[in-house]
């Protein structure tokens, strides 16, 4: 992978890191949206964005762990749906349960699904993208088969009751509020940050993504690292899934289908590298912010919601290309010299 020598790294007034660039883009984009619409820069809207993006942020930091370790996973969003189902069914069996039981169950189920990926990747040396394409289909196929595509609305009360953690009336008279998923999101983000940056195991994970052979040489337990990485993402997916079910107050088997791409897009935008060793929590969160803002902004500006995916795809393509302007220059040079040669040929 190319070094992300960002364009104009030599110019002092431009940001030098991916996070810096994202912040700049978010500020400019936010300013434009604030001017173009009269609803974007309101507390109500911003808090709403936070509530909506809690699920994506939880998933994003989980996925970051896998990317940092040098893998990739596209099965986590449908895994979250599976966890929603398993958890809902289990707590009903247990006679209702409560938040503590729900969270523990969701984490355990999530870890289990992640461990399936980890063992296939580690023990059979199958590349992670192939394994997770397969498990994506297995998880989703089995979920749709066993549920017959039916949703569950009959959820326990503790899961259905909206918990508002913080609320205030804005000067405009609207109510801005923060819900439980936001608090859980913050907890997951802090925990993942502590894990990746402050714990010995997290550092071993970075080391494995950075230089797998070197990690083996210094005696890092590669098998354990695989279970840790995919398991952590699994737990995040499980918790995220529970929060999403709580937020929409139902469990729909195909609700999260396709969400993995938004999350992956966000994390990659945030500077995580496919191949491992690089990526920060801050970057991932900024990536989620930008993706969410794009969606919200296009919405507020009255652009068709269908355009959203298109813009996200384009933004990633541009971001990848910008991260190596040298390659782009080589291409343009070649294109020009090819044309010049063709013209010379015509004359000669």
């Amino acid at each position: 992978m190319p070094e992300p020598g960002m364009p104009g790294a030599g110019r002092r007034w431009l940001p030098r890191s991916t996070e810096g660039w994202l912040t700049l883009v978010i500020l400019v984009f936010g300013g434009v949206l604030g001017l173009a619409t009269d609803t974007f820069l309101t507390f109500a809207n911003l808090f709403d964005l936070l509530n909506i993006s809690a699920f994506n942020a939880i998933m994003a930091v989980g996925l970051l762990v896998v990317l940092v370790a040098g893998g990739i996973d596209i099965s986590f969003a449908v895994a979250a749906s599976v966890v929603q189902y398993l958890t809902a069914v289990t707590v009903m069996q247990l006679g209702g349960g409560n938040w503590a039981i729900g969270l523990v169950l969701a984490s355990a189920f999530g870890f289990m699904l992640g461990a399936i990926n980890a063992s296939l990747i580690y023990y059979f040396r199958i590349i992670s993208i192939v394994v997770t394409i397969a498990t994506f289909n297995i998880f989703f196929g089995l979920l749709m088969f066993f549920t017959r595509g039916r949703s569950i609305y009959d959820l326990p009360d503790w899961l259905l009751d909206r918990i508002i953690v913080f609320e205030f009336e804005t000067p405009g008279g609207d109510f801005a509020f923060l819900t439980l998923p936001v608090v859980v999101m913050m907890a997951v983000v802090v925990a993942t940050w502590l894990f990746l940056n402050r714990s010995s195991l997290g550092r071993q994970l970075y080391a494995m993504g950075d230089n797998a052979e070197g990690a083996r040489r210094v005696g890092i337990n590669i098998a354990a690292m695989h279970f840790l990485a995919y398991g952590w993402l699994g737990v995040c997916a499980g918790i995220g899934g529970l929060m999403q079910a709580h937020y929409v107050q139902e469990v729909v088997p195909n609700a999260l289908y396709g969400r993995e791409l938004d999350v992956l897009a966000a994390v990659v935008l945030g500077g995580a590298r496919l191949g491992g060793g690089r990526g920060t929590i801050l970057g991932a969160l900024l990536g989620v912010t930008l993706v969410t803002m794009t969606q919200n902004g296009l919405n507020l500006m009255g652009v068709s919601p269908y355009a959203f995916q298109m813009v996200v795809g384009l933004v990633i393509l541009v971001a990848i290309t910008m991260s190596n302007l040298e390659g782009l220059e080589a291409f343009i040079r070649r294109f020009r010299s090819g044309r010049a040669r063709a013209e010379a040929g015509r004359q000669g």
């Binding site: 992978m1 190319p2 990739i72 993208i129 791409l261 992956l264 897009a265 990659v268 496919l274 191949g275 068709s304 269908y306 355009a307 959203f308 995916q309 298109m310 813009v311 996200v312 795809g313 384009l314 990633i316 393509l317 990848i320 290309t321 991260s323 190596n324 390659g327 782009l328």
Partner: peptide, 22 residues
Amino acid sequence: VGAHPILVSLAMMIFLRGLGEF
């Protein structure tokens, strides 16, 4: 650019799907 094909084709896939739905 030397970017990872998984990433590039994923971005293209997201873009094309969005374009098509749009």
